[in-house]
Design a protein around this nucleic acid. Sequence first.
RNA 1: GGUCUCGUGGCCGAGAGGCUUAGGCAACGGUCUGCAAAACCGUGUACAGCGGUUCGAAUCCGCUCGAGACCUCCA
Length: 488
Amino acid sequence: MKDRKGNLQVNNSISGQKEKFEPIHQGRIGMYVCGPTLYSEPHMGNMRTFINFDMIYRYLVHLGYQVKYVRNITDAGHITNSAGEAVDSIGKAAKLEQVQSLEIVYKYNVKFQDLQRTYNMLTPSIEPTATQHIQEQIEIIEKIIENGYAYEVNGSVYFDVRKFSEKFHYGILSGRKIDELEEETRSLNAQDEKRFFADFALWKKANPDDMQIWRSPWGDGNPGWHIECTAMSTKYLGDHFDIHGGGMDLKFPHHEDEIAQSCGSFGCNPAKYWLHANMLNVNGQKMSKSFGNYFLPMEIVEGTTELFSKPYSPDVIRFCMMQAHYRSTLDLTEDSLNAAEKGYTRLSDAIALLPKLKTGNESSFAVNELVDSFYQAMDDDFNAPMLIANLFEAVRRINLVNDGNDTITANDLDLLSNEMMGFVGGVLGLKTGISNGDSKLAPVMDLILDIRQKARENKDWTTSDLIRDGLAAAGIVVKDSKEGTSWS
RNA sequence: GGUCUCGUGGCCGAGAGGCUUAGGCAACGGUCUGCAAAACCGUGUACAGCGGUUCGAAUCCGCUCGAGACCUCCA
């Protein structure tokens, strides 16, 4: 198999442009993606981001890279708002549900793991949790203080953005300029401990009603929101790794502050390439409880959301998502899901046909070029929609061969089969429905179709249609062709 | 208010200065079929509006209108 590495281009949010992808260490890639915060069940929008990075991970692996994929789990609520007040969202959820923080985290972690399986996401190499890395976070904070980019006030530690800006570029990722920011942000209030409005907390002194408290050199408290990612990415991938990903909405302040923390402690931007996945809209608007278009990933699969009139399989949802580029917003509607369902059926029907195709002495079309087009699409900043368009060209060819209007050699068929399965199953992460044969249903179906065939030979259309309609009601589609009758 | 993204045919969505009228779904006409379905062939409707740059723009620039993101928790 030829080496396909080396043609990949990725859109780097730092430069805002497509760049040739060259790993820091040849053949190996370190990738960090900001994972879920476990104070509630992840919603469909969260899932889109994770599914997109799952696709990116899958393609890198498909290319033959050895990828270390780290996706963290935020299990500590330690968020501060602009006024510097601690907002312990996990603690808040715990109080609402009358359970301990740990239970909340555990409960939603189990759900998240279920969702990963349901949506066929590969398990990352490591899923570290924030609470298991408090010590590492403290050590990085100490280092930033040592370097002069942070200061302690009354048991809390803040990042000194002005001092940092003397040597580094704060705003390199988000494009924000701190003097412009100032005018637009509410001014420091009297009790604020920060020296400068843009300073952000690395460590917050504990409130009496915090449910999770840790000891530190500065007293009992909680780590700031951004420091956990710096601690964990550094621990598992080093000071400088290849890809850092996350949702578009994390660009500022989260990722910007991560960069500041890394520069402030190790002197460099932690990641060579920053990738950001775009948001999911539902019925034309950002998914939000107040818009009434909010639903959970299991509700759409189980058909328990009012938003859609029927359930959709995880594969159809994934397929629908893959038809949009990861950097574009995607609008999920009943129509788009129905279209995806039909399209996905067409694709998987063709794949199921692959093992049954007759081969010939020559191929009437350029299989190599077709396969190359799969790679070209994905090499262009993971253009999955383009890949799918090219896969449908292959679908057309497969059907033509099946109908005897195109020919393919055994070698070419082998190549096409492997690559189709590799891209559809391996890269897009879609389950392909070719397992009919080994189920207990198969012999029963053979029997039923045999009976129907007899009826058809006797021109007993009433019986044959009764069977066909009955199977359709059970979700089984019967297809008649010259070669015989098949079902799926 | 500031920073930024986007506005493509009935729908979802690629593309990006001059062959790609991408692709999927839907529609229409055929082939096939006992009738369907599936498959195949063919057809139609596009690039928000206005102005500019250019030999030439859906693709570049400006403005207008509209949608959205971030600036405050957010994938």
